[in-house]
Design a protein around this nucleic acid. Structure first.
Lengths: 243, 243
DNA sequence: ACAAAAGTGTTACACGTACACCCATGA
DNA sequence: TCATGGGTGTACGTGTAACACTTTTGT
């Protein structure tokens, strides 16, 4: 019987040198975005060992043999920031043969959005390892991490216009100006104030609170809160967020 | 020194049981879409061995130890259809612990679009293995392939409205009615004929040919051709395809 | 002459854009 | 009372939706 592929994975298990096929390492890398009211930032670590000693890198780790990829990513995020239940989405897998100097490692890249105020540096020896870096001034990065970051930013920029995920980056309560400024910096655009408000409010996704800003030297702005339940309801009726 | 993660992949190489981390298999699976002028179809194989004997499956294969993932996918596509240089895009990676009965295999899913007329079944014994299946009547599928297919279709549906990739599914020369019907079946909608034409032609992406349909029992329609160079030029000036 | 689908023009309306203006607060 | 940003109204133009109509072919 001729050796013909039947194109279903792991029928090659019959193959004698099958062990060679099970020699991959899989890692997860997670681009963590935050917003401090002024800049969009990424959470990066500084490498303490070769290769790429001293370079900035995206936090990540090898996936354990009996661990799901999402679980591994959540583990990394929890260990790094102390947070669980953050917005997490798979980005893309990078699997070039030579992407990693130390072996064949495919990395599943994720990106994550979190409210920067929630991030409490852990009081351990490696707490200083992670630091927020404004996305404008990123230098060289370890491995192919610059490429991964670029892909993440591009994805975030398109996604944020189609789904209401921007709110993940804002505090629970925010002003419309906060929201507008976030979108403007994220997308490198400017919006007309009046039109932006009308568009957002017309979507009926925000709950207007009976609260305003305090201690600002101008007319205090009303605070709003995003209503996820309302968004779900509207989505089912065919509503599409767009900005 | 305490064992503390530094969150850069493969520093755990120092770890004694590092071999356990390099025990993954990686496969690629490719959802191949086609359009025959009437239905949107997928190219599926029928499994000839256990597990999932007789079930339909998405074509794929294990990635070789020194092979890139894209290369592996192109190899599968070439072996299956005889075609190279088809539209190919990474979809998502599926890496659940128990997704594959025979071992820990993460699969990088791709989807591909091709002109159905270009597909020439290979004259080998396993030529019959692959067959076009209309996407409406898909039964159960092997492994988590149904989930993969659903993700692919969803992605195609959103992507096709934002990028001019629909043309990958049509013959080089097509009528506006062909195009409209493709979009209608792909998106389960109906468009107003007049408005659809105006919108498409206003984009200025099509080259009107001095040719018409032949042998139709009604007024023959003009043939058009998609102009990728024109699209590139317009994209650089901020144009965004949208339908 | 008719059926069938190609192809075009018109109108009403919704929506985005631009811009001017008023309002509330702290210093 | 001034500076600063919050907040709103209006007028105009563009784009979309709905629909009626004319044209060209094969039978």
């Amino acid at each position: 019987m001729p050796a013909q592929p039947d194109y279903s994975p792991v029928n090659t298990l019959n193959h004698p040198d099958i062990a060679e096929y099970f020699s991959f390492g899989i890692s997860v890398d997670c681009v963590v975005f935050g917003y401090d009211g002024k800049d969009v930032k990424v959470l990066l670590i500084e490498r303490g060992t070769d290769p790429y000693l001293g370079y900035q890198a995206i936090p990540g780790d090898l996936v354990h043999p009996h661990e799901d990829a999402v679980t591994a990513t959540q583990r990394v995020l929890r260990d790094l920031t102390g947070l669980k239940d953050v917005y997490l989405e798979q980005l893309q897998t990078f699997a070039s043969v030579n992407r990693h100097p130390l072996g064949r490692v495919a990395t599943i890249a994720y990106y994550s959005l979190l409210k920067i105020g929630d991030y409490n540096p852990r009081p351990s020896s490696w707490a200083t390892a992670a630091q927020w870096t404004p996305i404008q001034d990123l230098g060289d990065m370890a491995f192919d991490h610059k490429e991964i970051f670029n892909a993440a930013l591009e994805r975030l920029q398109t996604k944020v216009r189609q789904k209401p995920i921007g709110f993940e980056l804002l505090p629970e309560e925010f002003t419309l100006a906060d929201l507008q400024h976030l979108y403007e910096t994220l997308l490198n655009t400017e919006f007309d104030k009046a039109n932006f408000r009308k568009k957002i409010l017309a979507m009926d996704l925000l709950i207007a609170l009976d609260k305003t800003q305090k201690a600002v030297r101008h007319r205090p702005a009303r605070l709003y809160r995003f209503d996820p339940a309302r968004y779900d309801a509207l989505s089912k009726r065919g509503f599409h967020f767009e900005l």
